[in-house]
Design a protein around this nucleic acid. Structure first.
Lengths: 186, 186, 186, 186
DNA sequence: TATGAATGAGCATTCATTCAT
DNA sequence: AATGAATGAATGCTCATTCAT
């Protein structure tokens, strides 16, 4: 892994474990095995590294979420997306925690937050199609519908990360059902 | 308002707006109109003030959530609780933001997080009753069920706070429905 | 001497000996026998201390220059002023060196440089009177006349500070004569 | 212009505008269109470049000052030298500012300062001749006499550079007169 | 109770210089 | 000759906390 990558991943790891302000650049340097100055060769400042991580994770989202969708009915596709999200979160707990606990207002500038939403344009289109084709509630705003469904998933992963529940296949199935019940047209 | 109260509310306000580490004690002192030393007369350190705020808000929760429940069927009571939660969050945006954006791992010690859950024992009992009496899904763990329902509400308020959606009576009704669909026995 | 004074004089001393950028705040703190933080209690930043010194010295100028003028003819008064300047410079070599070698563009902001000229308004009036009453050249701009005369004095003190010449009474007398020959009406 | 020259002139330009310590080598490299490493191919360190500039300017002085002297009486020659100096300063404001504002104690080592005086040996001889032949004051030390005369010129140029006065032919004539009045035998 | 001057460890960042290519 | 990635000591400044009054 090159130095730039090592800096990013070390920062991600430390910032999730310790918090942004308990993570000095000197520690990042040491644990990434580079000199402090080297960090500033690749990044303008600490904030920029954090924004880089934020963009990176959101880009991953966009790709991973819509991957390997089965060519079947809407509901099955919805479930596949949920599963994708679960797998990503469970496989990348650092990414999950960064998004939930680190990239919290007012850390990320408004413009970045908005820019990054474009990475998940695919998901938005999918939901819009669900509304248009009468699979999803059509009386609820698109943004609210999406947020509520993903909130169900997020809630579950949060509980798992706190050590409060397991998140085996059974629970994943249940939460996916709940998310579907939330947003589907009745 | 006495000095202790002023310190707490000033800290809450600033910490929500600026973040914990961008909020120096000196600024809290100035905006609360007390001397720096006075803060340390009432609190051991900065962390203690934050924990005090955390306990205060959670205590409010416990009280507010179960207030004025109608003596009717379970579903109506569920809706009343949702409405209570909405009203609290909307009426106390600082409290909402503090819980969502400030009191984030690893800020609050594990023991405090657990201790504070007792404040909402009433809500837990209500959900347990819902399971036992066959109103709610009985195949899902209690914690997960509660978190998912409240996650629906929280998601909506977050969107409102970000300025992405309105949260008028219509939307509150919709989200309450979605939360109910999530957890009810089908 | 109080802490603020100690900080100012320590900074003056070090900055003259070492240059501004070879004088770290930590050294100022140590030699002034205060903590680093204390410096920032009294001043906003390093620059502010330097500006404070600059103002202080210029204020001294204004007072010292016109002190104890004999109530005689213009030329004798002129000589008294030169002597005042010599005495000040020789008695305060730190002040002299600060003005000549430290407070050099672009260290001091334009506005401060201009503001500070008001401290020596008395000298300007004296020169103006000299012009009006036909003691001094009236074909040369006031500013230029003043600068040239004081440049004579400054040149001499500079040589003394470099160790190139003595500056005993004899030389002081000579330089004063030269300054007078420079600006007087022929 | 070759790289070495480009480095020197870029450093001169930047150092005059920004000050020595606000001028990083990386900026010099960028604006001279060379790599940082290349600078260290031609010079040992930053200080050496500054000393090179200092020597270069002083060498210029020596040559320019005594150039094109008319073969007439002493006073006319004196006036020609003054004019040479004015022309040099006005045509090379960077050189002037470097000498006045950058090459200030303790930037240049004592030995260099002394060594460089040899470049202006011609001027020294001219003044000595003036003393010996009874054109200049013979009661004042040579160094002091020279410094005072050139101080008059310098004062005027400084005022011009500060934007305080024009320095057209009329003023140049005046200042030359003043310089002469300063040092001539009465 | 209340004050605010004083402290100094700790931080983000800079920059002259090196050196493998 | 020329490059520019890499280094890490050093700097200005912050801020939670203490304590004499």
């Amino acid at each position: 892994m090159d130095k730039r990558q090592r800096i990013i991943f070390t920062m991600l790891e430390l910032v999730v474990k310790q918090g942004v302000y308990a993570t000095p650049m000197s520690q990042v340097a040491k644990e990434a095995n580079v000199a402090v100055g080297t960090i500033y060769h690749y990044f303008d400042n600490k904030q920029e590294i954090l924004e880089e991580i934020y963009k990176m994770i959101n880009q991953d989202y966009g790709v991973v979420l819509m991957a390997n969708l089965p060519d079947t009915d809407f509901k099955t596709q919805f479930e596949a997306i949920c599963l994708n999200l679960f797998n990503y979160y469970i496989g990348n707990p650092l990414a999950f925690k960064f998004m939930e606990f680190v990239a919290v207002p007012p850390l990320m500038p408004k413009e970045l937050v908005e820019a990054v939403r474009e990475y998940t344009a695919g998901l938005r289109d999918f939901f819009q199609k669900g509304i248009d084709e009468d699979h999803l509630r059509n009386d609820v705003e698109l943004r609210l519908l999406m947020q509520t469904a993903s909130g169900c998933i997020t809630s579950a992963v949060k509980l798992k990360e706190m050590g409060a529940i397991e998140l085996s296949e059974k629970e994943i199935k249940q939460v996916t059902e709940m998310a579907w019940d939330c947003v589907r047209k009745h």
